[in-house]
Every structure is written in structure tokens, then in C-alpha cells.
Design a protein around this nucleic acid. Structure first.
Length: 250
DNA sequence: AATTTGCTCAACCGCTACACG
DNA sequence: TCGTGTAGCGGTTGAGCAAAT
């Protein structure tokens, strides 16, 4: 396959876009659309290659792009989807309205990857503590499928993250949308709040979800919540106990 | 104030998938 | 079936900026 000459060799411009170039591109696409990216720059009067024009439009100039910082919910969604899809940035971006694959990829490499590594380190140390606890005391076992509800019991360990200075990364206003299910198996929205104060129990905006037992453990290893819940959310933010059954289907 | 270091993010590069003749 | 052109994707780079020294 013969590769098309790159823009540099064609004497085309590279590097940051000038505001005038942006305006030319916007005007052209608003009038004619972007049927053929390769032909577009010539027709629009831009000294750029089609690839550069496409990238500038899709990553920056498109009118439906949401600018500004990612919300905690968006970051959580990206983490969740990345667990499911891996580095499929465009597939992840398709699930986040107004965000581009490039933006998500950058966020991942600059913030989320670090956070995930940190979380994994915490998870690993949590497992070590759990092993020690189990070997030292048989009486303090986790809630398991023995006392479940229609076989749906799932036990989780919930951890808040603590940085090197011992300060929790989850602030007092942290709330997350969680998906639960009522006794009929219908999915319902709830909110879970986690306080930075390790003495404060995580709390739900409404009555605790009914189906699966949870064990919520703070950074210091003590149990701070023991309720009933059943949600994908836990898989992404919290650690499922090693001896817990798989998350049941709704 | 000057220099270094680290971070962010727009843009590029190289590759693959796909459409079409 | 094969060759070619194009779009799209993921990895990487580097300019610009802010914070640290």
C-alpha cells in the first residue's frame, strides 16, 4: 500500500491553529459540511492537511463539545468504562456526551491512571489486612451468601482513599449516583455519600438498598457500614471481598 | 529574579479498518 | 481478489505554563 505524502512534504502548515484558520474551518463546515476531509482544506482555502482539519474539528471546534474540567461523576464513568473496555478511548467518549477521545485519553494519562494505581495499592494492602484478620479470628468473617436474599447476597469492602499525608481524597461533599434494585429486581437510582471523616458511616440518600449485604471498611480497617445493597457501582469504586460471590444480574 | 522541574493538553504520527473500483 | 484512498483510532510528542528551587 502506498502511503499518501504527509502534509510537511506537501508544503502544508503544521502546529497550533490560528484563530483565523479556526474561523475558516468553522465557516466552511457550517456551509458545506465535511464530506471529504482530504478535499476540504483545498476547497476551504486552508494550508492544512485533511487529517489536521478533521482533528481540529472533532477535538476542538465541534459545537457540541463540552469544555471545562471533568466532574467527579464523569471521572468515575471513565474509570468504570476503562475497566470494561480498556484503552478504547473513542468507545468511552461515545458514552460521555460532549467529551472527545483525545480529552479522555489525556485525562487518563494525567490523572486517572495515577488514581487507579493508588487505589490498587490500597486494595492490595487491604487484602493483606483482611488475610491477617481472617487467619487470626474465625469469628469475624464477612457476610456471605448464607444470609442472602434470593441468592443475591454480595459482600463488598468499601475503601476511601488516603494519600501519603493520611488525608482522605474523598471530600465531605462526595456523592455518587448508584444503581440498586428493589425486591422485585427493578433497578432504582440511589445516592451514596462518603464523608472524609473515617468515623462517619457512608450513607444513602434514601433507605439502604435491600438486596445484598455490604461491608464498608474505612482506611483504618474498621467496619463503618453494614447494610444491604446490590450495584455495579461497588465493583468500580470499592473492592469486592475475595470470598464474595459474583455480582448477580438484575 | 533566574532557572529548573513537572504538568497539561493540542496536535501529530503511524497504523488499521473499511469502502470502492 | 487486489490495490488504492480515506477515515478513524491509539500512542506519543512537545510547546506553554505554573510551581518549586
Amino acid at each position: 500500500m502506498v502511503r499518501a505524502p504527509c502534509c510537511e512534504k506537501m508544503g502544508l502548515k503544521k502546529g497550533p491553529w490560528a484563530p483565523e484558520e479556526d474561523q475558516i474551518l468553522i465557516n466552511y463546515i457550517q456551509l458545506h459540511g465535511h464530506g471529504n476531509w482530504r478535499a476540504l482544506p483545498k476547497q476551504a482555502g486552508l494550508l492544512r492537511c485533511g487529517k489536521s482539519c478533521r482533528l481540529r474539528w472533532t477535538n476542538y471546534l465541534r459545537p457540541d463539545i463540552k469544555r471545562g474540567n471533568f466532574t467527579r461523576e464523569e471521572e468515575d464513568t471513565i474509570l468504570t468504562l476503562h475497566q470494561l473496555l480498556g484503552n478504547k478511548w473513542s468507545a468511552i467518549a461515545a458514552r460521555l456526551r460532549g467529551r472527545t477521545d483525545n480529552e479522555i485519553k489525556n485525562l487518563w494519562h494525567t490523572h486517572l491512571k495515577k488514581r487507579l494505581l493508588k487505589r490498587q495499592r490500597l486494595t492490595d494492602s487491604s487484602k493483606d489486612i483482611k488475610k491477617e484478620q481472617q487467619s487470626s479470628s474465625q469469628a469475624s468473617t464477612l457476610t456471605t451468601s448464607e444470609n442472602n436474599n434470593n441468592g443475591r447476597c454480595t459482600t463488598f469492602t468499601v475503601k476511601t482513599e488516603t494519600d501519603e499525608d493520611g488525608v482522605s481524597e474523598i471530600d465531605e461533599n462526595f456523592w455518587s449516583q448508584v444503581l440498586s434494585a428493589d425486591n422485585s429486581g427493578m433497578a432504582t437510582d440511589l445516592q451514596l455519600g462518603v464523608s472524609s471523616d473515617p468515623q462517619t458511616r457512608p450513607y444513602f440518600s434514601s433507605s439502604p438498598p435491600p438486596l445484598a449485604a455490604l461491608e464498608v471498611v474505612n482506611d483504618y480497617g474498621s467496619n463503618v457500614y453494614d447494610g444491604d445493597a446490590n450495584m455495579d457501582f461497588w465493583y468500580n469504586h470499592f473492592t469486592r471481598a475475595a470470598d464474595s460471590p459474583e455480582l448477580p444480574e438484575f
